[in-house]
Simulated assay, not measured.
Amino acid sequence: MSGIIGKKIGMTSIFDEQGRNVACTVIEAGPCVVTHVKNEESDGYNAVQLGFGDRKEKNVSSAMKGHFKRSKTTPKAKLVEFRDFRVEFEGEDQVALGNSITVGDVFTEGDFVDAIGKSKGKGFQGVVKRHGFGGVGDATHGQHNRQRAPGSIGACSFPSRVFKGMKMAGRTGGDRVKLLNLRVLKIIPEKNLVLISGSVPGAKNSTVVLEK
């Protein structure tokens, strides 16, 4: 599974081959640095760890400073491991420690990718916004201030408790969300930009992981 780490820039729209106006998300993908390479002999599986974004050295532990020093790179803000990472890099199938991976090395236009991001936090919300409840719908017949209420949440004498997982009000958003089979519409390698069809979870400038 190949992939890359990026930053969500925002949304725009472009025209595809059929002349249709397609909404897309602009992601600044890479360049990422190979900070660790795992193999079957020493780790039991093959994987490549990529680092993206810069981080102040004072905010990095001594152990992580040594980790980044091995790959001869500055401390990175985001580290993601990709198992069975395969990419054609300068004529070789395998990447080495310290290599820089760009979006053009991993993706081509027309590929289908999976996008992983952290959804926008909505704070504490009611059941209508959080779970899509319809409410009572009719304000007559004694329904006073009950239009957006959750309704019954359980029986009284048995089981005398509320079951776990009951759809109720609570904190919404801020979850890890993965969207599957998003099409790569366009790649701008000189600016490390990739345009993905549709929306991608997360706010602007948030970190996004793209998997192939």
Rank of each mutant, 00 (worst) to 15 (best):
residue 10 G to Q: 01
residue 98 G to T: 09
residue 79 L to Y: 07
residue 82 F to D: 08
residue 66 G to K: 06
residue 32 C to P: 15
residue 135 G to K: 02
residue 79 L to P: 15
residue 120 K to Y: 01
residue 92 E to S: 11
residue 175 D to I: 10
residue 96 A to M: 14
residue 31 P to H: 04
residue 45 Y to G: 04
residue 153 I to G: 07
residue 44 G to H: 03
residue 153 I to M: 09
residue 70 R to Y: 08
residue 49 Q to W: 04
residue 137 G to R: 07
residue 34 V to E: 03
residue 161 R to C: 04
residue 3 G to W: 05
residue 44 G to P: 04
residue 76 K to S: 08
residue 4 I to L: 14
residue 27 I to P: 00
residue 112 F to K: 14
residue 195 L to H: 03
residue 19 G to Q: 13
residue 75 P to Q: 01
residue 35 T to W: 05
residue 51 G to I: 07
residue 40 E to Q: 07
residue 75 P to Y: 07
residue 114 D to H: 10
residue 104 G to M: 15
residue 24 C to P: 03
residue 130 R to S: 07
residue 139 A to G: 15
residue 46 N to V: 12
residue 24 C to Q: 04
residue 62 S to M: 08
residue 10 G to Y: 00
residue 183 R to W: 06
residue 47 A to C: 05
residue 36 H to C: 09
residue 18 Q to D: 13
residue 11 M to R: 02
residue 150 P to F: 07
residue 175 D to Y: 10
residue 32 C to M: 05
residue 72 K to T: 09
residue 33 V to E: 05
residue 146 R to A: 14
residue 140 T to F: 04
residue 106 V to W: 13
residue 153 I to K: 11
residue 161 R to E: 12
residue 56 K to H: 09
residue 154 G to M: 01
residue 40 E to P: 10
residue 114 D to A: 15
residue 152 S to C: 07
residue 132 G to H: 01
residue 131 H to E: 13
residue 156 C to R: 14
residue 34 V to T: 04
residue 50 L to H: 09
residue 123 G to D: 01
residue 176 R to A: 12
residue 156 C to A: 12
residue 104 G to C: 11
residue 87 V to D: 00
residue 186 K to Y: 13
residue 146 R to I: 03
residue 212 K to M: 15
residue 141 H to G: 13
residue 146 R to K: 07
residue 41 E to Q: 15
residue 119 S to F: 01
residue 151 G to R: 05
residue 110 G to S: 05
residue 80 V to T: 14
residue 62 S to T: 13
residue 56 K to A: 14
residue 23 A to P: 11
residue 12 T to M: 03
residue 118 K to A: 05
residue 36 H to L: 13
residue 194 V to I: 09
residue 8 K to W: 00
residue 195 L to N: 06
residue 212 K to V: 15
residue 5 I to F: 07
residue 173 G to V: 04
residue 48 V to H: 04
residue 29 A to M: 02
residue 122 K to A: 06
residue 97 L to Q: 09
residue 88 E to I: 04
residue 76 K to F: 03
residue 198 G to P: 09
residue 118 K to H: 06
residue 11 M to T: 13
residue 58 K to C: 06
residue 197 S to I: 12
residue 129 K to V: 08
residue 40 E to G: 14
residue 15 F to D: 15
residue 166 M to L: 09
residue 29 A to E: 08
residue 7 K to Q: 07
residue 25 T to F: 02
residue 92 E to R: 04
residue 165 G to E: 05
residue 9 I to T: 00
residue 73 T to Y: 14
residue 130 R to F: 15
